[in-house]
């Protein structure tokens, strides 16, 4: 493993078996299949895709919160190296300190019966990171200040806060154990645009100041483009294209990424109706199409796409794509 990779997935698959009919093979939801990604230390890694593409499952597998059916996920910081597949006991507990999650809906993620102080202090107490109440309080105040919550806020309950403030509380809770790696799963999707910008700026400044590595999951390419320095595009359980942000937008190679980009409504009222429409909807992950999984919706699909699984190829330095015809289509 090269030195500056914090967490890497190799040939990772996550399958969820369903209850069968009692005969034949049990159906399996193939949520993630053959994923290869490396997240560098201190980077802001974006993961984008439609609902049902498996991006949340991938994020959870990297936190060991989803079963790893095949392949491996390796986490390695300056102190420890963990193979998540076999991690358990005290080592797993230690990993929980190093890797944290920020949820999508700040209304559901905070207990209504705990004060903000208690919410932020809970990880410290559960993980035994502080030895006295004074120490806990000092740490909570420090983190709260970082997330622009004032001391007055700490005594209140979550219902007194707006969506943006609640999301800042969730961020504070994730930061309090000094993690190395944070998965932010659709953390701004439930917020108004004016608040969304505020939370994105906060996440970016935390990343700059403390060097925490982020896996930022979103369905919104324009949000990803503004916050992340590396982007992976997911479709039906597989990564179809991954590149540094500027390359992904200047040298878009996969037809799915192109369709996603053109589906974003333009802010210019004079540019109307140029969307390259994608027909149909994402197929079921129980029974994905053979060959390239995108072939049922791809405007350029040919016979080869229906039979042969496209290889994960490097187009240029750091820019990978899984498509048979990306050169011709570029």
């Amino acid at each position: 493993m090269s030195k500056d990779v914090l967490i890497a997935a190799r040939d990772l698959s996550v399958h969820f078996p369903l209850r069968g009919l009692g005969f034949g093979e049990r159906p399996v939801v193939r949520a993630c299949e053959g994923i290869n990604i490396e997240i560098e230390k201190g980077s802001f890694f974006g993961l984008v895709g439609e609902s049902g593409s498996g991006k949340t499952t991938l994020g959870r597998a990297m936190l060991k919160a989803a079963p790893i059916s095949h392949g491996e996920v390796v986490f390695s910081d300056d102190e420890v190296t963990y193979d998540l597949g076999s991690l358990q006991g005290p080592e797993l507990k230690d990993y929980r300190k190093r890797a944290q999650l920020i949820f999508q809906d700040p209304y559901a993620a905070l207990s209504p019966r705990m004060t903000v102080r208690d919410i932020i202090a809970e990880p410290l107490e559960v993980m035994g990171l502080t030895s006295s109440r004074e120490e806990t309080d000092a740490k909570v105040r420090e983190i709260a200040a970082k997330c622009r919550l004032n001391l007055e806020h700490l005594r209140r309950f979550p219902h007194a806060f707006s969506g943006g403030q609640r999301q800042r509380i969730s961020i504070a809770r994730a930061l309090v154990s000094d993690p190395k790696f944070i998965v932010a799963d659709e953390s701004v999707a439930a917020l108004d645009v004016s608040i969304q910008a505020d939370v994105l700026n906060l996440l970016n400044s935390i990343q700059r100041e403390s060097g925490i590595t982020f896996l930022f999951i979103s369905h919104d390419l324009s949000v990803i483009a503004h916050t992340c320095d590396f982007v992976a595009v997911m479709y039906l359980g597989q990564i179809v294209e991954a590149a540094p942000t500027d390359k992904l937008f200047s040298e878009t190679s996969h037809p799915y990424t192109k369709a996603l980009l053109s589906a974003i409504p333009s802010l210019d009222p004079d540019v109307r109706g140029h969307a390259q429409r994608l027909e149909g909807e994402i197929p079921s992950p129980i029974n994905p199409p053979p060959g390239c999984r995108f072939n049922t919706r791809c405007p350029h699909a040919q016979e080869r796409c229906r039979q042969e699984v496209p290889e994960w190829r490097e187009m240029s330095s750091g820019h990978h794509v899984a498509c048979h015809f990306s050169e011709e289509l570029a």
Binding site: Q165, D198, S222, F249
Partner: peptide
Amino acid sequence: NSLPKLDDLEAPLTPVPGD
């Protein structure tokens, strides 16, 4: 100003302050 714009990735996101 608070909207992320795809044609200018470097432009800072300026939130409307407060709630």
